[in-house]
Amino acid sequence: MRFQLKDILPPFLITLIILVVLEIVSTAFLPVMGIVRYRLTFYVLIILFMGFKLETPYLPVLILILSYVHSFFSIEGWAMGTLAGVLVCAIISYLRELIHFSSFILTIFVTQIFQIVWILIVSFMVYIQGGEFPYLVAKFWRFIPESIALSLFSPFFFSVLDKIWKKSGEGILRENT
């Protein structure tokens, strides 16, 4: 368990820089390529990685900071992402013993499952705020290709984050069966 802030800060800063670069790619590069309808929300992937890998008490604060940085690139704001992130990571912490990433396929599958949990939480929040059902249905149809693309990308992305957080030897992701 990483408890000391000095252990967390350097890799977290690098992760923030990666997030900024990916957000710029997602908001500026993809739309110019003609992909206007769909967007890859990389910060969800980073928060899921942290939920899977980091057992630090500061995790909710890290999620808050990630969501805050994401809000510079989206009018979505920080609150909804933080709430969904903290709740998803709380669920992950209870299921951690059951989650194993022995292959790429499993990594993709588990990432997809927790993205579905994420969208359910966000949709519920949007609904109780007065969001209409057709809007949620449209949101769900957008979510399917976006989440599949992110899940397919997750094994590679997690292995990069593994190196940054020096987690490869600890056997949670892509561990040997």
């Binding site: 368990m1 008490p57 500061y58 995790l59 609150a79 933080t82 709430l83 705020q129």
Partner: peptide, 29 residues
């Protein structure tokens, strides 16, 4: 101590984000 700190931070951040969600207006920012 870690678990207590984790619980406190989780509750604090959830309450803060719930407040943020409730206060958010989509008129202007």
């Amino acid at each position: 101590e870690q678990n207590r700190l984790k619980l406190v931070l989780n509750i604090l951040v959830v309450v803060l984000s719930l407040y943020g969600v409730a206060k958010r207006e989509m008129i202007y920012d």
